[in-house]
């Protein structure tokens, strides 16, 4: 049976529930990725919070809390087919118990490890390369606004870091790819849809500070040691679009 779900973590867990109590799953596909054609039998699973809670409680109890976190992170990686990877990991864990995360050599565990590291790597990178701009709405209160397009759905994972850091600022982190944004201020935040066409009004000094930063960025490279390949290995080109100091525009070579 192929299960179709709404693309949420709870939805995926509801599918796991059906995998046990209805019929084993051959594939679990998000609605948005499910095409019209297909010969397999398909069933739409409506997200049921109580079923999802039962599954997550079982994961936490039989595997560990840490494992549940890993499932969530692996889910956020956004790769197609990840649902079945998590499913295999979870049901293997039901057999082995909490020692599942010690089985580094097991292909199913390894797969989750790879997905989790992918999310962690991108999260880590964006804590550094996310660029905020100062935005001035009508009433003159300054708001920090950042836009980016990550591969993994990491916006909610970034919030604790920036809430802690910007204790006296209001800020918005806009995931352009997923057309949603986290709005934060006074230690709290909410996630709301925000179209990719949204473009705010920047403060009058914004471009000047960007230029200062670009100037610094260019001056800081040592000409005798130029190594653009190494640079690219740290910041892949897919991240350059939203980077203020994008290397494309700041070539220090004569």
């Amino acid at each position: 049976m192929e299960y179709i779900y709404d693309g949420t973590f709870d939805g995926m867990l509801t599918c796991f529930f059906a995998h046990v109590y209805v019929e084993p799953a051959e594939a679990i596909i998000a609605e948005s990725d499910a095409g019209q054609l297909g010969f397999a039998r398909r069933q739409l699973i409506v997200t049921d919070r109580s079923k999802a809670d039962r599954v997550s409680a079982a994961i936490e109890k039989k595997l560990s809390r840490q494992s549940l976190r890993r499932c969530y992170k692996a889910f956020l990686c956004g790769e197609s087919g990840r649902e079945m990877d998590v499913l295999r990991y979870v049901f293997k864990g039901f057999k082995t118990g909490p020692c599942i995360d010690m089985l580094h050599g097991d292909p199913d565990v390894r797969r989750i490890d790879v997905l989790e590291r992918k999310v962690n790597w991108e999260l880590d990178r964006f804590l550094g390369i996310l660029r905020f701009s100062v935005v001035c709405p009508e009433d003159g209160v300054e708001i920090l606004y950042a836009e980016y397009a990550p591969n993994c759905d990491i916006t909610q994972l970034m919030m604790p870091h920036f809430l802690n850091r910007y204790r006296r600022e209001a800020f918005v982190i806009h995931d352009v790819k997923r057309e949603k944004a986290a709005f934060a201020g006074r230690g709290r935040w909410v996630m709301r849809p925000l179209p990719k066409t949204f473009s705010p009004r920047f403060s009058k000094d914004e471009e000047a500070y960007r230029n200062l930063w670009r100037g610094y960025f260019t001056a800081a490279a040592i000409k005798e040691r130029l190594n653009p390949d190494l640079q690219k290995s740290f910041i892949p080109t897919r991240y350059w679009e939203y980077l203020t100091e994008s290397p494309e525009r700041n070539d220090p070579r004569p």
Binding site: Y216, K223, F234, E245
Partner: peptide, 15 residues
């Protein structure tokens, strides 16, 4: 936390 990498591949964390 590294904030960017210059053309020589060195990270920039601090001003």
């Amino acid at each position: 936390i590294c904030h960017t990498w210059t053309a020589d591949g060195r990270c920039v964390s601090l001003l």
